[in-house]
Structure formats: structure tokens, C-alpha cells
Nucleic acid binder design. Structure first.
Length: 492
RNA sequence: GUCCCCAUCGUCUAGAGGCCUAGGACAUUACCCUUUCACGGUAAAUACCGGGGUUCGAAUCCCCGUGGGGACGCCA
């Protein structure tokens, strides 16, 4: 086993990656890369009712989109194992768990339990009524192993339970994020290691895998904090040295509840569809519980890796603020070189663009269009919306109604239309040509100020507010401008 | 119910006993830039959950409350 840092992200594949899970994955990734260690993806699919290959593919898709590539785990395409500690899917490691369970049974630290669900429920209710903790007290705890084996040979189903009754002490460990945490051993009852169908249970396979896969540090969500006691007991039973643990706080919604699917977007997939950049999502999620030593907020992955430390991870729960995420996205969007921004934006633009518009070149159409429109959108979806002005039919906004009422508007619209109809223009109007027309309308119609500018804008984009016209107009095809001007004339 | 974790502006946070008259960011408001909007700039407003200790001195350490969260599964 190596001294190098080895950490893992161990999701159970039940659908797209949730932002809470994404943060756990990200912190593990940052931690691994910070120390030059390995980031491993392990698939916890022992709950066969919920785990499907379809879900696994969705999960992998999100992880890759985020750019959190793992060094060991499954191949994204074939789902075959990559790395020397495999298999990495728990459903393929059943024999390993069985061997370890047998060892614990042989040592007398676990036993076969034949209790039925009904018996368990009855006992729990009884204990609860007596104000006792609802811990199972199995009558089979004292059954000799040979006897239990005979029952099993006879076809009876049994779970394997870990024996906690003989352990009477506190379990203490130093959490990387929370400091010393102490659990009394009677906090838990005899818990299940192996289900009656032979499938291992989370707390058991987690320990076996973390140990066998050589994990040095476990960074996981707080909901697992109390599970650590059971896991520590298993490490002790096997005389294995436990890794170091760090428990991350939960990501909460606006009501300070654990983030759930019911309220807004919670999966990375949704943010991808809404036009968020993975770099922005990662940056934002990283800040949900971690901070840069100098308080820097907008960061690249390199900066996060360089500065990541569990000592700067906050133990308190963090509310997911989608407004700030949007701001963060805008920051990353605007910092992107136009060529890259254009490549990101293009798949979101559904309206037709001509060939000269689509192809990016320095100082070309797309470059200029981004300069003009970039400050007005914060997501790629909003960006695509902004680009509709170049190809989609114009709709007049409600705010335009007031402009239509001005007595001067009709003459502005007509002057604009007439100017555009002159035969001397090319496919596009140049900025100087537009300014010239504007000037001409002003002097000839004697309209100025907002009566002129807002009316012109309504004739161009259907709204009195928006991008500076001298930037926008030269990007619009003359025929489009003419068409729109005509529509405007028809309205008054 | 039992055990565990957590607690600084509305939100994310800085803060390791004196640098705190509590700093930054998002959001909010005002102003500036701009014949519009957005971007950008400047400024304002807003927080140490409560009570006890310890100390010359507490946001920071300890205790007790309170509040929030988590766990108590043949889920993970």
C-alpha cells in the first residue's frame, strides 16, 4: 500500500449527480490533486432495487461534464474497471465481503440472525414504548455457530449481525473538519453486515473497500458522521488501521433543509441544460463551505487545487444560493476568450445563423456580437435568447406601447425605414453609416433625445431598452432591419 | 425519545483572546458612467442566538439553555 494520498467518491448510482454529491466529489478531487494523490470512483450499487446501469451512465456524464476525472474506477464508456484495486463496483465484490464477514464471524464478533421483519418491528416498538433506544436484541446472538450453520444448510435465511454487546467503551476519532468526535459504543445496536441474500450493507462494504482500496482519507457528507462509529468497530474487529475522516456539512435549500429535488434545480445536469459553465458551478460549489485563504472568490481549478485544505472547510451547513451561482457564472462567462465563449454558446443557439455569422474569427461577426451582447447575459441560455435578435421574428414588448403613443414616433419609424430602403447599403450597415442615418433623421425630423433613440430602438428590437444601437445595428442584416422597421411602421 | 454535529449581515463567508468601531462577496438601496438597458465604478444599510463563567481583555475558550441539522434500516 502506498503512502500517497488516495481518496474516493463513492456514489450510489440513482440518477444525475446532485449538487451535494458534486461538492463531495469536488472536495475529494481538490484534496487528491493538491497532494498529488489519486482520486478514485467507486460505485456503491449494493441496493439493487435502486441502482441501474442507466443511472450510472447519467452520473458519469455529469462527473465528466464537471471535469472531475478519476484516476481509478470504471471506464466512462465501457464501464469496465480501470485500476489495480478493482473491481470498483460493489456488486462485483461480493466474494470479498463474504470472506471478510466469515472472518469476523469466526472471531466471534458477528453472528447469524434469523429474526423476521415482524419480530424486529415488534421489538423496536416495544423498546420505543419503554423509552429505550430502538436497538435490536437478537435471541440468536448466543446461538452457537455450528447450530446456526445447520439452520442455514437447511435453507433458512439469515443476516449477519455485528456483535456490539461486548464492546463497552467510547470510540474517539479526530475528524479533519470537526476535530475530536466521541461516540459511546452503546449508541448502536447489533447492526447488519450481510443481508439475507448475501448482499453487504453500506457500513460494511464501505469499510472493506476503503481498506482494500488503500484509501488514506475519507471526505464525505455529514450524514455519515454517525456511521463512522459502526465503521470504526469493523476496522477494530479486523485489526485494520482506519483512514482519516472528514465530514462535510450538508448543502441546504432556502428553508435550511437538506437540498431536495422538489425545490428548483439540484442536479448538475439541470445546470448544464440551463447554460451554466462547469467551471462556474465548481467554483460556486467549492465556496459552499470552503474559502480561499485570501478570500478570493472567482477562481480557476488550478487556484482551487493549489489552495485547498480541509482546515479551511467550514463545519456548518451552507444554503445553496442560486442567485450567487448565476453571478458566478456571469463572471466565468465574461472572462472567457470570445472564441471559447462562442464555442460554448453555439450549441444553445437554436435560431438560424448564416455561415459568416457562425464561424468565429478575430474581429469577425461573432466576436463583435459577443462584445455587444456579453454584458447582458449570465447563462448560455440567456445568451442564446439574446442572439435571437439576429434571426427571429420581432415581438413588441409591453414597454413599447408608450413609445407608440408619442406623436413623433411615426415620423421616426418612417424616416428609418426610408433610409434603410436606399439602394446604397451592403448586407450590413457599417457603424458610421448607422450614425449618419441617425443624425439625418434627427436633423430632418427635429426629433431628439429619448423620442428619437427609444423609438429607433423599438424599430430595431421591439423594446425601448437594450443594447447600444451603434453596436447592435451593424450586426443585423439589412433585410432584417428593414423588415423590422416595416413592422414598426405598421404599428403606428 | 436517545446519541452526534452545527450556530457571525437575508445568503456564502473572514475571524486561532487584544489587530474588530467585526472584513470581503452575492443580493438590496443611492449616486457616478451612459441621451436607454446591461456592464463597470463609488458609497450606504444590515450580523457575532441567549445566559452564565474563565480572563486585565471574549465573536474567538468552558458550561447551560435555545434553535437548526443528521443518525438511530436487510438505504446509501
Amino acid at each position: 500500500m502506498t503512502d500517497k494520498v488516495r481518496v474516493r467518491f463513492a456514489p450510489s448510482p440513482t440518477g444525475y449527480l446532485h449538487v451535494g454529491g458534486a461538492r463531495t466529489a469536488l472536495y475529494n478531487y481538490l484534496f487528491a490533486k493538491h497532494f498529488g494523490g489519486k482520486f478514485i470512483l467507486r460505485i456503491e450499487d449494493t441496493d439493487q432495487a435502486r441502482s441501474t446501469e442507466e443511472s450510472l451512465k447519467m452520473l458519469i456524464e455529469d462527473l465528466l461534464w464537471l471535469g472531475l476525472k478519476w484516476d481509478e474506477g470504471v471506464d466512462p464508456k465501457t464501464l469496465k474497471d480501470v485500476g489495480e484495486f478493482g473491481p470498483y463496483k460493489q456488486s462485483e465484490r461480493l466474494a470479498i465481503y463474504k470472506t471478510v464477514a466469515d472472518e469476523i464471524i469466526k472471531a466471534g464478533l458477528a453472528y447469524y440472525c434469523f429474526m423476521t421483519d415482524a419480530e424486529i418491528d415488534k421489538q423496536k416498538e416495544l423498546f420505543k414504548a419503554q423509552g429505550k433506544p430502538p436497538h435490536i436484541q437478537s435471541p440468536y446472538a448466543s446461538m452457537p455457530l455450528a447450530e446456526a450453520l445447520i439452520k442455514i444448510k437447511g435453507g433458512e435465511k439469515a443476516v449477519v449481525r455485528f456483535r456490539t454487546s461486548s464492546l463497552k467503551k467510547d470510540y474517539v476519532f479526530k475528524d479533519l473538519i470537526r476535530g475530536e468526535v466521541k461516540f459511546p459504543s452503546d449508541m448502536v445496536g447489533d447492526f447488519v453486515l450481510l443481508r439475507s441474500d448475501g448482499m453487504p450493507v453500506y457500513n460494511f462494504c464501505c469499510v472493506v473497500d476503503d481498506y482494500k482500496m488503500g484509501m488514506t482519507h475519507i471526505l464525505r457528507a455529514e450524514e455519515h458522521l454517525s456511521n463512522t462509529l459502526r465503521q470504526l468497530m469493523i476496522y477494530e474487529a479486523m485489526k485494520w488501521k482506519p483512514p482519516e475522516f472528514g465530514h462535510l456539512s450538508l448543502v441546504l435549500d432556502e428553508d435550511r433543509q437538506k437540498l431536495s429535488k422538489r425545490k428548483g434545480a439540484t442536479s448538475c445536469h439541470e445546470f448544464k441544460l440551463e447554460g451554466y459553465l462547469p467551471e462556474a458551478l465548481k467554483n460556486f460549489i467549492a465556496l459552499l463551505g470552503w474559502s480561499h485563504p485570501e478570500g478570493k472568490e472567482v477562481m480557476s481549478m488550478e487556484e482551487m487545487i493549489k489552495n485547498f485544505s480541509t482546515s479551511r472547510v467550514n463545519p456548518a451547513g451552507a444554503v445553496f444560493d442560486s442567485v450567487k451561482l448565476k453571478w458566478m457564472n456571469a463572471q466565468h462567462l465574461r472572462a472567457l476568450p470570445h472564441k471559447d465563449l462562442w464555442n460554448e454558446l453555439l450549441p444553445f443557439i437554436k435560431t438560424p445563423l448564416s455561415g459568416d455569422q457562425k464561424t468565429f474569427s478575430e474581429g469577425g461577426w461573432a466576436d463583435k456580437a459577443l462584445t455587444a451582447l456579453k454584458p447582458s447575459f449570465e447563462t448560455l441560455v440567456e445568451g442564446a435568447e439574446a442572439f435571437k435578435v439576429f434571426s427571429e421574428e420581432m415581438k413588441f414588448a409591453d414597454e413599447a406601447e408608450e413609445v407608440f403613443k408619442w406623436p413623433t414616433t411615426k415620423s421616426v419609424f418612417e424616416a428609418w425605414y426610408n433610409a434603410l430602403s436606399l439602394p446604397k447599403w451592403g448586407t450590413y450597415l457599417l457603424e458610421e453609416e448607422f450614425l449618419e442615418i441617425q443624425k439625418k433623421i434627427q436633423t430632418e425630423s427635429k426629433v431628439k433625445g429619448k423620442e428619437l433613440f427609444q423609438a429607433l430602438r423599438v424599430a430595431v428590437i421591439g423594446k425601448p431598452h437594450g443594447t447600444e444601437l451603434k453596436l447592435l445595428v451593424p450586426l443585423m442584416k439589412l433585410e432584417n432591419l428593414k423588415h423590422r422597421a416595416k413592422l414598426a411602421c405598421e404599428r403606428v
